[in-house]
Design a protein around this nucleic acid. Structure first.
Lengths: 372, 372
DNA sequence: GTGTTAATGAGGCACGTGCATCATAACAAG
DNA sequence: CTTGTTATGATGCACGTGCCTCATTAACAC
């Protein structure tokens, strides 16, 4: 009679128990719906609490056979460790570091603000976040910084940095040392699964689709402005954009990307030249995450109203531009969601838990002036 | 010397302490960055832990003067109750009920699925969710059900129900009895602040803007299909839609709403009649949350491809329709986010905490075939 | 047989809070 | 003065887990 074997918990938890008993449980006052504890595990597996502890925390000195018995009991009772009690016992807190490029950029400012916001939110879970500014153009210094982090100081790091072999290696070494590491927004090749950010190819395609549709059958060329085409993000966005335009809007022709290199003078010169050279421009796509300068320059140049303008990222500037109607659409990733998702995933890694996929998928948002 | 008064905690927490000390604290090994406990509170206020407990939990039998002293200490030390320990002590778990209309609707199916998903996610916080199906057309039975809930069974309820005085009253009575109550998706008038869902006026406006832009300067009429115009949501969407179209797309003219009342035959008849009567239709806006039937009927009738179609809510059907290009855009609210937000807010109410506004604002999503 | 070692049991304290009990003090009403 | 009331202190257990120490057992080599 399995009922007797399982013992006390038969009527208290219902996870692996027969439907009938589970039903009984549901009927009972829900406050008594307790989860099995390590004590119950011990009883069920016929071992002591000490051994259960050894198995749960992966300590050495337990026969495989015993490990299996305990694991079987875990499965049977549907035991889940009470994280709050565990954290309480070892008075654990999680310190996470966000390694971000130096700011100036409104989008980065948003991120930093959201990190502070999230810290308040997660303080109940004993999560603390720090921001460390890195020099995005110096992979060596980034790698050096990451190497300086150890498990005792930092539980996890979210890294926003352009792709480079040094950084990729540093991330892998971090993980080996037991520090959770997560690429943020800019992905590093190979780490397909474990990163936080949007699918930039799809984002570019969405920009293309929006621009194409808004152009409404007009024919002409489309200007594409980027900060630099060195970064993976830009390349992927461009790829998605081009594919969408080519396949679905044969009347449109996208020009080669204009690279500003973050230099306003250069930007003014190349944008001006391009506008003069092409009289039939129907759309402008600003691919860079900092849309302020390119758009300001375009505005200076008295570009006709009916030229469609699409940019990336929600910032105070792009919000205002949407309201002003000097911008027609914004493709964005929610900064708050990015940050919270990174924290949850880092915490999940530390706790050796699986996180909820659908919540952690960062959506490609389309912002128009009506849904800011 | 205030340092002595505050005592132990001077260098351990830095919330209300001078910047210099806070800085010292940051410098220290972060693991020692402990939060003040009730014990520290007691010491700082010069009372016993028992009295601190009385104040914290609002029990009677404490002089006002003493209450003030304790509260002052709370502020000074920046004390925040350790919720996990508290929950552990009283082995509390939160049971929340989602009161939803009976299904059939793909959007509702999504919601139910997301609730189950969220239950897994929140199980670490001892949150349990049940779904209770209500008869949305019978306010009396809804009210009766809500009245049957008591604090001992249920910590909170999220209610998706059309507006009615009975339901509104029942919600208020629930709250008086100490059960957290939260309107979900469909709001009840007057409860502006405390509800979970999107701004339907803005959602309608977004639909209008999208449809207008996609129409690309063409002139003609726009068909609007609703399930019923009785509900507040529909009215608000229509309002926003009309305003957007009138103000910004003078070439378009929106017809009166066609109400299907959820009846396929009726739907087929009125949609067919409308299509025949208006040869210059350039767009169709399906306002109902269940877009499947109206869109299928439209598809049956061989409506030209270039007529713009906009609908609401992400469902398997609308996703497929976007891919098929039989639908041009979807205005959606993320079901998972809705559910999680409701749970977090209910929990926040129960714990008497403030929740993070920006996270709980439900965004109006625009889905195109590229960003599904 | 003795010593050695690995595997396990037994027990206890700690974490921060809720909650209960009993004791003590102050003070007012009778 | 007693008696009752109210405010407070003192203390201890409980919650579920981590972590530590010390004892016990069995297996194995010498």
């Amino acid at each position: 009679m399995p009922v007797c074997e399982i013992g006390l918990f038969v009527w208290v938890t219902g996870t692996q128990i027969t439907d009938k008993l589970a039903e009984m449980n549901r009927m009972t006052d829900q406050k008594t719906m307790l989860r099995p504890t390590t004590k119950d595990l011990a009883k069920s597996a016929g071992v002591s609490r000490a051994t259960v502890d050894r198995v749960l925390n992966g300590r050495i000195g337990v026969r495989q056979e015993t490990v299996d018995r305990v694991n079987k009991a875990i499965a049977e009772l549907g035991f889940v460790r009470n994280l709050q009690a565990a954290n309480l016992a070892r008075s654990q807190s999680y310190r996470f570091v966000f390694a971000l490029p130096r700011s100036g950029d409104q989008f980065l400012d948003q991120i930093v603000r959201r990190i502070q916001e999230a810290e308040t939110l997660f303080s109940a879970d004993h999560v603390w976040c720090d921001v460390h500014h890195i020099d995005e153009n110096d992979p060596h210094s980034i790698s050096a910084y990451l190497s300086s982090l150890s498990k005792s100081d930092v539980a996890g790091v979210a890294i926003m940095s352009p792709e480079s072999p040094q950084v990729r290696d540093a991330i892998m070494r971090l993980q080996e040392r037991g520090v959770a590491a997560l690429p943020l927004i800019s992905n590093q090749t190979m780490m397909d699964a474990d990163w936080v950010g949007i699918d930039n190819r799809a984002a570019g395609a969405t920009a293309g689709l929006l621009l194409g549709q808004f152009a409404g059958g007009r024919r002409g060329t489309v200007m594409v402005i980027a900060e630099s085409m060195q970064s993976r993000d830009s390349l992927e966005r461009r790829l998605g954009f081009d594919q969408e335009i080519c396949e679905n809007f044969p009347g449109l022709h996208a020009l080669p990307s204009l690279e500003t290199y973050g230099n306003p003078d250069r930007a003014r010169a190349i944008i001006g030249a391009s506008l003069n050279a092409h009289a039939d421009i129907v759309g402008i796509y600003v691919m860079a995450s900092e849309a302020r300068k390119p758009l300001s320059i375009v505005a200076e140049m008295d570009v006709p109203r009916d030229i469609i303008r699409i940019a990336h990222e929600r910032t105070p500037f792009t919000e205002q531009a949407l309201r002003d109607r000097t911008l027609d659409g914004v493709i964005a990733q929610d900064a708050g969601h990015l940050v919270r998702s990174a924290i949850r995933r880092l915490k999940g890694i530390v706790d050796r838990r699986k996180t909820l996929g659908s919540q952690e998928q960062i959506r490609i948002e389309i912002l128009l002036r009506t849904n800011i």
